[in-house]
Protein backbone atom coordinates (compact mmCIF):
# COMPACT_ATOMS: atom_id res chain seq x y z
CA UNK A 1 0.00 0.00 0.00
CA UNK A 2 1.30 3.47 -0.85
CA UNK A 3 1.43 6.19 1.81
CA UNK A 4 -1.54 8.12 0.43
CA UNK A 5 -3.66 4.98 -0.01
CA UNK A 6 -3.18 4.18 3.72
CA UNK A 7 -4.25 7.72 4.67
CA UNK A 8 -7.28 7.64 2.34
CA UNK A 9 -8.31 4.18 3.60
CA UNK A 10 -7.93 5.32 7.24
CA UNK A 11 -10.03 8.41 6.51
CA UNK A 12 -12.70 6.41 4.67
CA UNK A 13 -12.82 3.74 7.39
CA UNK A 14 -13.12 6.32 10.18
CA UNK A 15 -15.83 8.12 8.22
CA UNK A 16 -17.86 4.92 7.72
CA UNK A 17 -17.54 4.03 11.43
CA UNK A 18 -19.19 7.39 12.16
CA UNK A 19 -21.60 7.61 9.23
CA UNK A 20 -23.33 4.22 9.01
CA UNK A 21 -24.42 4.11 12.69
CA UNK A 22 -25.65 7.73 12.40
CA UNK A 23 -28.03 6.70 9.62
CA UNK A 24 -29.35 3.71 11.55
CA UNK A 25 -29.57 5.95 14.62
CA UNK A 26 -32.42 7.98 13.13
CA UNK A 27 -34.62 4.85 13.27
CA UNK A 28 -33.41 4.00 16.78
CA UNK A 29 -34.10 7.55 17.92
CA UNK A 30 -37.80 7.03 17.26
CA UNK A 31 -37.95 3.77 19.24
CA UNK A 32 -38.83 3.69 22.94
CA UNK A 33 -36.98 0.50 23.90
CA UNK A 34 -33.94 -0.38 25.95
CA UNK A 35 -31.57 0.65 23.15
CA UNK A 36 -33.03 4.15 23.10
CA UNK A 37 -32.44 4.51 26.87
CA UNK A 38 -28.93 3.11 26.43
CA UNK A 39 -28.12 5.66 23.73
CA UNK A 40 -29.64 8.43 25.85
CA UNK A 41 -27.19 7.65 28.67
CA UNK A 42 -24.20 7.20 26.34
CA UNK A 43 -23.33 10.92 26.05
CA UNK A 44 -22.90 11.47 29.77
CA UNK A 45 -21.00 8.19 30.12
CA UNK A 46 -18.64 9.18 27.28
CA UNK A 47 -17.95 12.57 28.89
CA UNK A 48 -17.14 10.90 32.24
CA UNK A 49 -14.82 8.39 30.56
CA UNK A 50 -13.08 11.16 28.58
CA UNK A 51 -12.46 13.14 31.80
CA UNK A 52 -10.72 10.14 33.37
CA UNK A 53 -8.69 9.48 30.23
CA UNK A 54 -7.51 13.06 29.76
CA UNK A 55 -6.81 13.75 33.46
CA UNK A 56 -4.92 10.50 33.97
CA UNK A 57 -2.54 11.54 31.16
CA UNK A 58 -1.75 14.74 33.10
CA UNK A 59 -1.47 12.89 36.41
CA UNK A 60 1.14 10.48 35.03
CA UNK A 61 3.19 13.42 33.73
CA UNK A 62 3.71 14.54 37.37
CA UNK A 63 2.47 11.86 39.80
CA UNK A 64 3.11 13.67 43.11
CA UNK A 65 1.20 16.03 45.42
CA UNK A 66 1.98 19.12 43.33
CA UNK A 67 0.51 17.48 40.23
CA UNK A 68 -2.56 16.40 42.21
CA UNK A 69 -3.02 19.88 43.69
CA UNK A 70 -2.79 21.50 40.25
CA UNK A 71 -5.42 19.14 38.86
CA UNK A 72 -7.68 19.77 41.87
CA UNK A 73 -7.30 23.58 41.55
CA UNK A 74 -7.97 23.53 37.82
CA UNK A 75 -10.99 21.25 38.18
CA UNK A 76 -12.44 23.32 41.04
CA UNK A 77 -12.06 26.51 39.00
CA UNK A 78 -13.90 24.93 36.05
CA UNK A 79 -16.78 23.71 38.21
CA UNK A 80 -17.07 27.04 40.08
CA UNK A 81 -17.16 29.14 36.92
CA UNK A 82 -19.58 26.73 35.23
CA UNK A 83 -21.85 26.99 38.27
CA UNK A 84 -21.74 30.81 38.31
CA UNK A 85 -22.08 31.32 34.53
CA UNK A 86 -23.37 28.54 32.26
CA UNK A 87 -20.58 29.31 29.77
CA UNK A 88 -18.50 26.26 28.79
CA UNK A 89 -15.86 28.31 26.94
CA UNK A 90 -15.26 30.68 29.87
CA UNK A 91 -15.12 27.81 32.38
CA UNK A 92 -12.61 26.00 30.16
CA UNK A 93 -10.36 29.05 29.78
CA UNK A 94 -10.44 29.97 33.49
CA UNK A 95 -9.76 26.35 34.53
CA UNK A 96 -6.83 26.05 32.10
CA UNK A 97 -5.41 29.41 33.27
CA UNK A 98 -5.61 28.39 36.93
CA UNK A 99 -3.93 25.07 36.10
CA UNK A 100 -1.15 26.87 34.23
CA UNK A 101 -0.71 29.44 37.02
CA UNK A 102 -0.63 26.69 39.66
CA UNK A 103 2.09 24.92 37.68
CA UNK A 104 4.15 28.11 37.63
CA UNK A 105 3.51 28.86 41.35
CA UNK A 106 4.21 25.29 42.53
CA UNK A 107 7.33 24.78 40.41
CA UNK A 108 10.26 23.37 42.37
Amino acid sequence: MTWWSIVIAAGAGTFLIRYLPLLSGTRLARSEGWLSRFLGALGLAAIAALIVLSMSDLWWQAPHWRGGLRLALGATAVLLVQRLTPNVGLATLVGASIYGAAGWALAE
Partner: peptide, 22 residues
Protein backbone atom coordinates in the same frame (compact mmCIF):
# COMPACT_ATOMS: atom_id res chain seq x y z
CA UNK B 1 6.13 27.65 30.11
CA UNK B 2 2.88 28.97 31.57
CA UNK B 3 0.96 28.92 28.27
CA UNK B 4 2.07 25.39 27.41
CA UNK B 5 1.06 24.18 30.88
CA UNK B 6 -2.32 25.90 30.66
CA UNK B 7 -2.95 24.37 27.22
CA UNK B 8 -2.30 20.89 28.65
CA UNK B 9 -5.41 21.27 30.78
CA UNK B 10 -7.75 22.65 28.12
CA UNK B 11 -9.32 19.33 27.09
CA UNK B 12 -9.83 17.98 30.65
CA UNK B 13 -11.30 21.41 31.57
CA UNK B 14 -13.62 21.30 28.57
CA UNK B 15 -14.88 17.81 29.48
CA UNK B 16 -15.41 18.87 33.11
CA UNK B 17 -17.38 21.95 32.05
CA UNK B 18 -19.49 19.79 29.70
CA UNK B 19 -20.15 17.31 32.51
CA UNK B 20 -21.26 20.16 34.77
CA UNK B 21 -23.56 21.43 32.01
CA UNK B 22 -25.14 18.01 31.37
Amino acid sequence: GYVAQALDFVLPALFLALLAQA
